[in-house]
Amino acid sequence: MENVIELQNVNKSFKGFQLKDFSMTVKKGFVTGFIGGNGVGKSTTIKLIMNLLQPDSGTISIFGLNYKQHEKKIKQRIGFVFDDNIFYEHLTLTEMKRIIKRAYSNWDDNLFRYYVEQFELPLNKKIKTFSKGMMMKASLTIALSHHAELIVMDEPTSGLDPVFRREFLDVLHRLMENEDKTIFFSTHVTTDLDSIADYIIFIDKGQHVFTKESTQIEEEYAIVKGEKELLDADTKKEFISIRKSNHGFEALTANKNRIEEVFGQMVLIEKPSIEDIMFYTKKGAEWHV
């Protein structure tokens, strides 16, 4: 399968933060969710992908091209959404469109009108009067109006109400009916990922933790609940992290089948949310509450 984004052994350090030997790939035709806590390097990675930052070392290629030689070619094919307002506030959406339109050779006014109508966006109101949700819809509209093959979004759903989050996911679902589209977005609202993400990349403290298919996560990971007496040196090895309380234990495993073999009916096995996986992986080992 073709990789649309490829980061290889990328290093980037700032004061008090470091992206360490970071490698990842994003596959064409799929939605990849990028998860991790606050300040672990999600935005930095997205900036590197957009060439807003250059790596200290390592290589970045988008559509198999590098930014040194093909910057404009690459950016023609990307639609982007950031979590803050990146438009001129004193302009209206129509005025903003006129400015951005000229940058893209593939701009499609019909598509722009389609999304404006669908999102019920006001064309002649100043952008600074837009609510957070409208702002996001406006960004998405601009990002989708030039037939971009890759959509890169930094925390697109943060601060949005649940109704609009669903609408937003619907738009992405419809976009993905076309197999040439690729979506990459960071989020810490992990419920966004449950219904749409094909791949999940987990970053923590500037390091790549895992890249997995969402179906693989469903198959491998499980939350296991049971009595503390079941835990001993041997059985503990099966868990990534264990939370113990006076009433029993709860743990995350990445080897669901093995757990079923070992414990059988003695434990309760549940499907973990992505949030569970993030939480337990970050906690590590075992702890007591």
Partner: peptide
């Protein structure tokens, strides 16, 4: 139905229907 169509209709990821 195509994998992508089904994924959209069921509100699930493409990779799930693909699988």
């Amino acid at each position: 139905p195509s994998m992508r169509q089904l994924a959209k209709d069921l509100d699930i990821s493409v990779i799930t229907t693909k699988r």
